[in-house]
Amino acid sequence: MSNVSPPPPPPPPPLPGTRISSPTPSEPLIGAEDLSAWPGTGPVMVEAIGVTKSFGDVVAVSDVTFQIGSGVTAILGPNGAGKSTLFRMLCGLTQPSSGTVTMLGRNAGADREVRGRIGLAPQQDALFDRLSAGAFVALAAQTHGVVRAESRTREVLAQVELDVDDPKPVGSFSKGMRQRVKLAAALVNDPDVLVLDEPLTGLDPIQRQRMIALFGELAERGKCLLVSSHVLDEVARLGSNVLVLAQGRLAAAGDYRSLRDLMDDRPHRVRVGTDRPQQLAAALIERGSARGVTVLADAVIVDIDDIDGFGRIIAPLTVDLGLRLDELVPLDDDLESVFRYLVERRR
C-alpha cells in the first residue's frame, strides 16, 4: 500500500478587499493616514505567510497564510485549534517555527513603533493585582506614550463602564470586571490593530452588546480588529469576516455566507412553512427538487443542493399545488452551521 500525501491545499483567498501582494518586513510602516482608505481598498494590516509553530512534537499552527485589512475579523476554532498561539505570533510574543508574520508591515516583537500601535487583550486572566483599574490602565497609557494619559484613561474606563476613581485593587475584581480592565488597557493607545483573545468572556449580555457596538465603531474608523470567541452568534454580529482554524490549519477564510455557498458537498436546509406540508413534501420528492424532506405539522424541512434553483421553483410549485406558502427560512447558512461543517470535516 503506498502512502501518498495529498497535494497541499491552495492558499485561501484573501479576505475581501485585502491586497494579495506581501509586504516584506523591510518595507516602510503603514501610516495611520493610509488606514482611512479602508474598507475594501486599504492596505494589508496583518499578514501571515506559511506560518507554522511547533512545541516539540506538537504542531500548534501549521502552514497558515492569510492577509487582513481593517474591520473586524473573527478567528474561530475549537479549543486547541491554535487561535491563541496564532495571536501570540501576530503580536511577536512568540516566533513562528517557520514562515513570516507581519503587523502593519513589520515584526511586532522587534519593532517598537509597531508595538505602540497594537492593543492586545490576552486570554489569560493575569493583571497587576495590586493596582486599581485606574492605575492599571494609566500605566498602560503611560507605557504606550499616550500624551494625555489621565484623560484618556478616564475615557476608556468609561467606555467599559468602570470607575477610574475606584480604589479597589483589580485582584478583588470579578472575572467580567477584569475582562473590562484588559479591554480598556488594550484600547487606551487608540491602536490601529486590536488583538482581542476571547474578549467577551465573563461579560453580561448588556456589556457584550455594548462591546460589540464599540468594536463596530472602531472598525468603521478604519481599525483592524482580530477577535477570537467561542460565542458564535456574537461573532456573527461582530461582522462576517472569519478565519476558521481547525487542528492548527486554516480551514477557511472570508465572509462566512460566501463560505457556506462554497460548501457544495453539504445540502442546504430550508424550512418551508405551508398549510399542507405532506402534499408539498410529496411533490418535492416526486419532482426531484429535494434531497430529503422532514414533514412537520405546519412546515417541511427540505435538504437541497441548489438553493438558488429551489428559490426559483418553490413559489410556482405552491401555486400549482394550490398550497399556501407561509415562510421560507434558510436553517443552516448561519455562522454556527458554517463553523460546524468546517470543523466536522476535519474530525
Binding site: 510574543l93 493575569a126 493583571l127 497587576f128
Partner: peptide, 14 residues
C-alpha cells in the same frame, strides 16, 4: 511566571 510580563513587553519601550 504569572503572565503579566506582556503588559511591559508589548509596549513601545526598548
Amino acid at each position: 511566571e504569572d503572565g503579566t510580563l506582556v503588559y511591559l513587553w508589548l509596549r513601545p519601550m526598548d
